[in-house]
């Protein structure tokens, strides 16, 4: 396909998606919501190669939407209200996917700096945090494993591994910030 979604300036893509999403909040038509979602999916089909990932993301999305439909119908009193709430979430997910699946975080950061005149520090900080996420996840698994090896009984709700993740995260952010300073990035 054409992959044109990747070529749009990330900041402009971001602004467009956010603007459309905000505009959508002022409407109250379930059909419009569904229409927005369908258009998003069409964009992903014609303009990117991420439709498979998008469909995978649709599974949890449908779960949330179903939940909202039920609670919306109960609270609002009519199925119409439920449907409206559920489709709203679906539409927002559509916008989110169009942006996030087709935007490289690095390019987005550069665009934020250049087009949105965002301070560099802020942009880098966001990216740093973004790159730490997989480490935090791995750290959590390691911490659980380490505790299990020492003979500590753990349930899914145990906070012990979270404690060591927290301690380590604070240290990480310090270390990382020093490493970046040593590479010439000015501190806050």
């Amino acid at each position: 396909m054409f992959n044109y979604l990747y070529k749009i300036n990330p900041f402009y893509k971001f602004v467009t998606v956010i603007t459309l999403a905000i505009l959508l909040t002022f409407t109250s038509s379930a059909m419009l919501n569904i229409g927005a979602f369908v258009i998003c999916m069409l964009l992903l089909i014609t303009g990117s190669d991420k439709i498979v990932s998008a469909l995978k993301l649709c599974v949890p999305m449908l779960l949330i939407a179903t939940g909202l439909f039920i609670s919306g119908a109960n609270i609002g009193g009519s199925q119409q209200d439920g449907l409206f709430l559920a489709t709203r979430v679906v539409a927002f997910m559509g916008f989110g996917m169009v942006f996030s699946l087709t935007t490289d975080p690095y390019a987005f950061m550069k665009s934020l700096q250049k087009d949105a005149k965002l301070p560099r520090k802020f942009a880098y900080g966001v990216l740093c945090a973004f790159n730490l996420v997989p480490y935090i996840k791995e750290e959590y698994n390691n911490a659980r494993l380490a505790l299990a090896v020492r003979g500590v009984k753990l349930s899914i709700f145990s906070v012990k591994p979270l404690f060591s993740v927290l301690v380590n995260s604070v240290r990480w952010s310090e270390m990382l910030s020093m490493a970046m300073q040593s590479k010439g990035f000015d501190a806050e």
């Binding site: 880098y124 990216l127 740093c128 790159n131 270390m175 990382l176 490493a179 970046m180």
Partner: peptide
């Protein structure tokens, strides 16, 4: 640094 994991931002 000693800790090789914490030197990169990207």
């Amino acid at each position: 640094f000693q800790n090789c994991d914490l030197q990169f931002c990207m």
